[in-house]
Design a protein around this nucleic acid. Structure first.
Lengths: 243, 243
DNA sequence: CAAAGCATTTGACCTGGATCAATGAGCCAT
DNA sequence: ATGGCTCATTGATCCAGGTCAAATGCTTTG
């Protein structure tokens, strides 16, 4: 009776990380049938990340791809003097590292306790070859990111500070894990500084804009990591550039 | 002896637009063998565009994909009050319309006399099915655009006006049709206003920055549609945020 | 529960780039 | 050539958001 015991003793995520993965539903992995999950699990290496841990460094040789399965990571680019632009926040299900080049074009850092699934480039290539649906899914993902990137360019190039913050809040509400937004509460795992670096603003401007929305009764701020939308239509209007 | 005559009379681009296409080399079409070009030509519809003509309108139902084969088009997004963000300029070889959604996420307008090749969505789907290399090529294209978009976010969110203009000039030099930059001359088919809308600045700031670079002997401006880079290393330094 | 260490907020002031306003410079069409 | 375009340049002024400088919480740790 050794077999059952060994399975019991083995942490489940080491036995079959994929079938029990919280991100299984949303991520690109959903393109792979349950019966082939073992193959996927054998290819992936799970890595836990502490808050603040950087796991992709811009310019490094792009040897791996990642899939975020827990927590949140920020993707960013730096200028030599330390100015930082956050290009996105990636939560569970997000696929990272799509690049034709041999080096990463951005850095990635966990902004809270997180977990990623790592695939080596050659192994992912094999997977893509064996599961054409996966390639199609990746193309879809890339297209969606491109659309999001264009929206962000509009925000960074042409929107006011108020419009940027409103856009950020509304987008967070929409991007939330589907149907899991009791009332209109948003979790903000990132700091004000990270929001500022995402919106092309300063910490002070983000904070002031939050305070003003709060004074105008459009939002409530129960804690530093949580915002409640009180007047969603109004915020959506501001975000869209109306008025 | 009717056959040769009919071919002679027929404009070549109606006979086989693809084999004689100037963009054949760079575009996604390069993923398709010469022997299959007829198939590609049968799928595509050539359309000539006058300067200022809009051929994709944000929000319209996304029924077609396009490949620019001549001239230059600008891709842009608008806010209700008319503020405009140009998300990119697409020259010969550029593929447009990648989107999962059913509506276009941006508008596109020819900024000079141009020509595009139009593919209907279902027909492109067929092509993708029959030529897996094409799908792979599209994924590569999408990845490259994603990298460019992230770079542009850094520019829009964190660079100064000087750095933006320098980045624009250096990028134009690099993106030029490979090995066809006699000296360091850049063609600028777009107006100052379009450059401004691309860089998140105003016409006046773009013009002033050009004038200043010129006064500092870093560039020359032989005409409104042409710039010559005189000090490329210096401009690259500014573009990268050094100094 | 005090002290240290952050992240955040708030206030006072400053500035890079926007806005407003002419002026100049090509480019047609007549 | 000349008047009427449009696009680009240049100057003067203004202001949204940046910078600098204190407070004010929140955690964490001893």
């Amino acid at each position: 009776m050794l077999r059952p015991r060994s399975i019991l003793l083995m942490p489940q995520h080491e036995h079959d990380p994929c079938s029990s993965c919280a991100a299984r539903g949303y991520s690109v992995c959903s393109a792979i049938d349950d019966k082939d999950l073992g193959r996927l699990a054998a290819t992936a290496v799970v890595r836990d990340l502490a808050k603040g841990e950087t796991f992709i460094e811009e310019g490094d040789s792009a040897s791996d791809f990642f899939n975020v399965t827990r927590g949140t990571v920020k993707l960013y680019k730096l200028l030599p003097d330390g100015r930082q632009q956050v290009t996105g926040f990636a939560g569970a299900g997000h696929f990272l590292g799509l690049a034709v080049s041999n080096t990463y074009a951005f850095s990635a850092e966990a902004i809270e306790q997180s977990r990623v699934c790592r695939f080596s480039r050659p192994k992912l290539r094999e997977l893509l070859h064996d599961f054409p649906a996966l390639e199609e899914r990746l193309l879809q993902t890339a297209c969606n990111e491109l659309v999001a990137a264009q929206e962000q360019m509009l925000l960074l190039g042409r929107k006011t500070a108020r419009e940027r913050v409103a856009s950020f809040l509304v987008a967070r509400l929409e991007t939330g894990i589907p149907c899991v937004n009791p009332s209109d509460a948003i979790a903000l795992p990132m700091t004000r500084g990270e929001i500022a670096d995402y919106l092309g603003l300063t910490i002070e401007t983000v904070s002031r804009t939050f305070s003003r929305f709060k004074a105008e009764k459009r939002i409530a701020i129960p804690s530093n990591t949580e915002v409640v939308i009180l007047d969603r239509p109004w915020l959506s209007g501001i975000a869209a550039g109306l008025q």
